[in-house]
Amino acid sequence: MINFEYSRTSSVKAALDVLAKNPGASFIAGGTNLVDLMKKGVATPQRLVDINNLPLKQISIDAKGLTIGALALNSDVAENEKVKKNYPLLVQAINAGASAQLRNMATIGGNIMQRTRCTYFYDTTLPCNKRKPGSGCGALKGYNRMHAIFGASDKCIAVQPSDMSVALAALDATVMVSSSKGERKIPFTDFHRLPGDIPEKDNNLQPGELITAIHVPVNSFNKNHYLKIRDRASYAFALVSVAVALKVNGNIIQSARLAMGGVAHKPWRLKQAEEMLTGSAIHDLSFAKLTDNIMQDAKTYEHNAFKIKLGKAAIAEAINKALQ
């Protein structure tokens, strides 16, 4: 690892100032992803700005919904009694990710900033347009079992690995961002982006911006489930995952939220499927039609064709589980 400079900062303004003056600087919070990337030589910041002392750790619920400070720990959110009660989908998704130790380190802001686990991205000797623009995509004709089936480009077929992000996408969350220019809100589904021609950009955060909080609107969904299919029972990234939130009244689905993980460069919100589900009777769901529709745009590669069938199965199972 290069020996970088390290400093601490205790206000948002000071943090933004340091970043503005030092283009080679990175913020560090939990460090679970950044330190790992630095060890692998994938990230080489000249300077780390430790933002753990910023006052961005609060978790609050009011009439408008849930606001989570960017520096709240994953475990603090998942253990919060009010969050557990009102946002079970979010809690399930957080607990499906990483390990108890990592969730004690990783922050909410860091979680959504985590970079892909694509092996070609992580290995600096292999080609990767995301790590080194123009070097090619090693996964495209390489080993691509874990890779995207939606929204990929010939520059990049990596997937976003965050479980929590899938739930946040389903729950219509908003990312609150600060910069020297002021504050702005980014709808969660617009936070991450598709790779297109600039796969090095994971998200739509602008240079000099800092995530301060994530807001989740009031949760009216009474049936929730986060299903993660993986190669072992815990502590593994998703082959596919599905976040389901349903508002069921009597036998009728009044509204539905559906998103998938492990299938795209961003959490893959399934709006069309949500519309199909809305108004349906819960005993009369046609999963075949629903999932065929979802998968009609899927494009697979040599090793990940199974994700279509597995994805369909996971969607059906996740909805069934939510309804149980």
Binding site: G31, Q101, N104, M105
Partner: peptide
């Protein structure tokens, strides 16, 4: 998880935590 220690009472992976943090 072999590097698990408690920092201020919480279990963490000490391999991913910079000492200065």
């Amino acid at each position: 998880g072999a590097c698990t220690v408690h920092v201020d009472g919480k279990r963490i992976n000490s391999c991913l935590s910079l000492a200065v943090m």
